[in-house]
Computed example of a mutant assay.
Amino acid sequence: MSTFAALHTMEEIDSFITENELAFIYITMPNCSVCHGLLPQIEAMFKQFPNIATRQVDAAEVQEIAGRFEIFTAPVLLLFVDGKEYLREARIVQTAKLEAQVKRLYENFYEN
């Protein structure tokens, strides 16, 4: 069971992105072994960044997300800063690299 709450509509997704300064979305597909295997690692990583709001979206349930964010594979990890896409990782994610990028952003964002 995921610790990331799920979003079920494009309206929920849009609201989530606009209402949070730092918003992270983990996009999956139901039969994606990479999606399900990577999720626990990503959830554990984001525990060290408590000010980043996190959610999960099933692209099979919210099919419009593929067109909106130009998604062609899964998983897709999107990080938004003030409503703008800042970081995107897809399919094969290097968790150490991702963690370093998020940490750098997080530290810079909260230094000021």
Score class of each variant (00 low, 15 high):
T54C: 09
Q41M: 13
Q48V: 11
Q63V: 13
F69S: 04
F49D: 02
V57A: 07
I27L: 05
A66H: 11
V34L: 02
Q41V: 13
Q41I: 15
F24Q: 03
V62K: 00
R68E: 12
A60N: 10
E43T: 11
L22M: 09
A23Y: 04
A23T: 10
M45W: 03
A44H: 14
E61I: 11
E21M: 07
E64A: 15
T9C: 00
A59R: 11
T9G: 00
Q56M: 14
E19Q: 13
T18A: 15
T18P: 04
M45D: 06
F4G: 00
Y26W: 12
F46P: 00
I17N: 05
R55L: 06
P40Q: 15
E21A: 10
M29R: 12
Q56H: 14
I13L: 06
K47I: 08
A5I: 09
G37E: 08
P30K: 15
Q56D: 07
F4N: 06
T18V: 13
L7I: 12
L38E: 06
T54W: 01
I42S: 01
S15R: 11
A44M: 10
H8T: 12
G67E: 05
I27Q: 00
T54E: 05
M29P: 01
I17Q: 08
K47Y: 00
C32N: 02
A59M: 09
K47L: 12
I27P: 01
T54D: 03
A6E: 12
A23P: 15
L39F: 08
P40G: 12
L7A: 07
N20P: 02
M29E: 12
A44Q: 14
A5Y: 03
G37C: 07
A53Y: 03
Y26Q: 01
Q56K: 15
T18E: 11
R68L: 04
M45Y: 01
E11Y: 06
K47G: 03
D58I: 06
K47F: 06
V62N: 02
A66R: 15
A53Q: 05
E21K: 15
N31C: 00
S33V: 12
F49Q: 07
T9H: 00
F24L: 07
E19M: 11
M10L: 02
N51Q: 14
N20L: 08
V57H: 05
M29H: 08
N31G: 11
T54H: 05
L39M: 13
G67C: 08
T54P: 04
I17D: 04
A6L: 13
C35D: 02
E43I: 15
A59S: 14
E64T: 09
A5K: 14
P50T: 13
F16A: 12
